[in-house]
Design a protein around this nucleic acid. Structure first.
Lengths: 226, 226
DNA sequence: ATTATGTCAACTGTTGACAGTTTACCGACT
DNA sequence: AGTCGGTAAACTGTCAACAGTTGACATAAT
């Protein structure tokens, strides 16, 4: 195995481990928005004391994944419609930026891999047309790779950590409209094409259009549900 | 005094107070980037125990204002040139978004106040031409008001809290080039004009141009310094 | 029946103490 | 002279116990 000795090791404290666990639980949906976190209970179930757990909670609090009301308790951050709107605005700006940057910074190899990924998606989608879940994880995977291709780590962290979380939470909203999957795929292809052409502005615009479509669709869903 | 009883009070724990104090110290420049924070020392000087202090530190850690290396200590986040570049990219995207939104959401009264603020700046600048500090605080004030006018609280929080911090830290770089102050003022006026005209795209572009100029200028300064 | 009040259990906020690690310093050896 | 090894102080990581607050339930009064 190469590089077993030159990668620097870092002792990760209990706080790090616990924070990662909680974050994973939130992103994976195990902890739903608004769910209360009991310090005693969680500490016991994780096998740590309340001290490190509280510190981990504070860190996630700083990232706005958890909310604390004094003397009452901690809850997983719940997004009001206003929050949702605000985040979607920010997300659009950032993801367009990522797309713009990717057009100049993404290595050819990764672009090729991205195209290949879309081929895989196409086949899967043609098979199981209306299953929203798979579509959504693929969607996230696509966006994830794209953002990483931007070369801007901080941007990647912002989008992957704080904003995708909320997309994940509200993914069920964008369930299974027949035909939408094909549209998404086409829009993804347009984005990749612009990146491959090394055209930042076109890439940015393609992404913006994609996100606007997705957004309008989600809003229609929400309106339909009441 | 009106409303002494109907405004709801909220018990702010020691953690909240301490976190605010530390944040203020960082933003005000009292704590410079890379400065080490001694838990014992700071706890003693703030008159609190190490527990709450550590939790406050964790929260700021989540916001990337502080960095912790295990078993060594906490330092104020220091930005590498790479970080600086990444943040400037993100900041440009977000501030342009804010400008775009402000063009539709900012109340007329606030726009008028903003214009008046620029008038004040003009007079001050004509008097003390080359003092970078005043210029920079005014600059921040202008941008701060603008972002708040966007109506997007989360965006405002992101820009005011996490990104302006770094601008503040590196403000001395953009010291006192004669003539730049006048340019800045003119660019600010252009932005306000576009917002007053309720033209989101124009406002966004005006801001982008402004930021690009500011950026190029800072880079020239850095290059000149070596 | 309904509202208000008092009490109690559960939980959060804070503190102090203990264990483990790092760092600096000093002496011995090559 | 430079490097290696060891010791001690300072600091960080973790834990357990105590104090204060909240929310719910039961009881009493209207």
């Amino acid at each position: 195995m190469a590089g077993l000795l030159e990668n620097k090791v870092q002792a990760q404290s209990l706080v790090d481990v616990v924070a990662e666990r909680i974050e994973a639980a939130i992103i994976s949906g195990q902890l739903e928005p608004g769910a209360k976190i009991s310090e005693q209970g969680l500490a016991a179930s994780l096998g740590v004391s309340r001290g490190p757990l509280r510190e981990a909670i504070r860190r996630l609090e700083g990232r706005k994944l958890l909310e604390r009301t004094p003397n009452v308790g901690v809850r997983v951050a719940k997004l009001s419609p206003k929050d949702l709107n605000e985040i979607l605005q920010v997300r659009e700006a950032l993801e367009c930026l990522a797309c713009n940057l990717a057009a100049t910074n993404m290595p050819d190899a990764e672009i090729a891999a991205l195209k290949k990924l879309l081929d895989v998606h196409e086949k899967q989608k043609s098979v199981q047309e209306n299953t929203g879940y798979y579509q959504e994880t693929e969607n996230l995977d696509f966006h994830y790779r794209l953002v990483n291709g931007s070369g801007n780590e901080r941007l990647a962290h912002m989008l992957a950590g704080d904003l995708h979380y909320m997309l994940r939470v509200y993914r069920y909203k964008s369930g299974a409209k027949p035909g939408r999957a094909a549209e998404v795929l086409q829009e993804h292809r347009a984005i990749v094409a612009a990146i491959e052409a090394r055209d930042p502005v076109a890439a940015e615009n393609a992404m913006r259009e994609h996100l606007r479509h997705a957004r309008r669709y989600v809003e229609e869903q929400l309106a339909a549900e009441g």
